[in-house]
């Protein structure tokens, strides 16, 4: 079995995986990082979204072996020094969740939207850019509000506007 090494949330990790092992399986089952969820397992719902070398991807459709040498950020890696990331804080503040299952993917995707589209986001942009994430509670209203607020807050907390991960 191939061994893969990568940096996950700032820590170097190595694991023996099968060729078919998915990144999300490595995160959840080998590393115990169960914040990354598996919803549909068919590249549609986005619950498994993580950042691979700074870019949002659906980790149910990435091979773990493909991530040799990569830098991965999961929902567990967003908060720093015990303080919620501005996007997490915005989701809390605006109650942008109902059952909470899609939330980790929503937040990771939201941070990726800020990376691609900047901090000043209008509702339409957010809704379009959130197409890869499904909330089966249909609680999009507050999610959109939270992302708009979180994106603006990220600018204040990081003058460069550069998201982490």
């Amino acid at each position: 079995m191939p061994t893969v090494s990568m940096t996950v949330n700032g820590k170097r990790v190595s694991a023996e995986v099968e060729g078919r092992t998915l990144l999300v399986e490595l995160l959840r089952e080998h590393l115990g990082l169960t914040g990354t969820h598996v919803g549909c397992d068919t590249t549609q719902c986005g619950c498994c979204t993580v950042h691979l070398n700074g870019t949002g991807v659906k980790s149910c459709t990435v091979l773990a072996a493909s991530c040799e040498g990569a830098t991965i950020t999961t929902i567990e890696g967003l908060a720093t020094e015990g303080k919620l990331h501005p996007m997490q804080e915005a989701f809390r503040e605006h109650h942008a969740l109902q059952c909470g299952f899609c939330t980790p993917g929503m937040i990771m995707s939201a941070v990726d939207i800020v990376r691609r589209k900047g901090n000043d986001l209008d509702e339409r942009t957010i809704r379009e850019q959130l197409e890869g994430n499904i909330c089966r509670c249909t609680g999009y209203h507050n999610i959109v509000i939270a992302i708009q607020s979180g994106a603006a807050a990220m600018k204040q907390s990081r003058p460069s506007g550069a998201p982490p991960g």
Partner: peptide
Amino acid sequence: IGDPLVRNR
């Protein structure tokens, strides 16, 4: 194509 996360990959 697809959605933004699919387009990233």
